[in-house]
Amino acid sequence: MSLRERKKAETRQRISDHGSMLFYERGFDNVTISEIAEAADVSKVTVFNYFPRKEDIFLDRIPELIDILTSTVTDRPAGETVLGALRRMILDHVATGHPLAGIEDRFRHFWRVVLDSPALRARAREVAEEVEAVLTRLFTESGEAHDPHLMAAFVVAAFRTTYQTTAARILAGETTAAVHDDHVTAVNNAFDTLERAFP
C-alpha cells in the first residue's frame, strides 16, 4: 500500500479498536460516536467517513468477509466447485481460529456484546443478506447453479446454523477443544447435503 493508504488503514483500525474497547466495557448501546471519536483522537466526521454506521465499528470485518468470499471463489483451483471452495475456506478459518468463521473460547465476549444489542443483531441479519447477494452473483458467474439465489440462501443458512449452534455451546461453558471436532463434522455434513441437493 502507499503511505496514504497505510495511514487510512491505521486510522480505520484505531477507530475500530477504541470503539470495540468501549463496547466491551460498557455495552454497545451505551457508547456514543462522540465518545469513540474522542478515544480515537479523531473527529465525529472522520468516524463516519470510515464507518457510516455505528454497528460497523464493532462488525468491522464486513469488507474483509466480502473480499474473502469473492477471492475464494474467483481464485479457486481449476476443477474445484464453488461449494468445494467455500467448504475449504470455512474449514481453513475454523482450523486457524479466524474471527470470520473460527470457533474459539476467546470470542465469547464478542458474541455476548452482539447478543445484548438489538442494533447489532439487526445489522448481523443485514450482513447475512449482503453475503447472500454476493454469493448469488458468484454462483451466477460460475454457471454451476441452476438457481444461484436458492443455492446462496442455503449456503448462508448452513453456515449460520452450524456456527450459531457451536457458539451457543461455547457460551454455555464448553471449551473449543470440546466442540471443535463436532463443529468440523457439522460443517462437512452441511456441505455434503448441499452437494447432494445441488449436484
Rank of each mutant, 00 (worst) to 15 (best):
D41L: 05
E80R: 15
G79C: 05
H183A: 09
L135W: 00
T96W: 13
T161I: 04
D181F: 11
D116V: 07
S16Q: 08
D56H: 06
D116G: 11
A37G: 05
D60E: 13
A178C: 06
F58H: 02
V42Q: 00
R169G: 14
A39N: 05
A119D: 04
E141D: 07
T176Q: 15
D60N: 15
A190M: 09
S34G: 09
A40F: 00
E64F: 14
V155M: 05
L194T: 10
Y163A: 10
M21G: 08
W111H: 15
T175C: 09
F154H: 11
R14Y: 02
R88W: 03
A168K: 12
N49T: 05
S16I: 08
V47A: 00
V131E: 15
N189A: 15
D67A: 15
I90A: 08
L69Y: 07
H183R: 12
A122L: 11
V179K: 05
Y24V: 02
V94H: 06
A39P: 08
A124Y: 11
S71M: 07
A153I: 00
R137L: 01
V73Q: 02
S34H: 06
Y50L: 03
V187G: 14
S2V: 10
S43Q: 05
H109T: 13
L3A: 12
F110R: 15
A167D: 14
K8Y: 03
T96M: 06
L194R: 02
V42N: 00
E80I: 09
Y24I: 03
T136M: 04
D92I: 02
I68C: 03
L120S: 11
T175P: 05
T74M: 08
A122I: 11
E130P: 00
K44N: 08
F28G: 08
N189V: 10
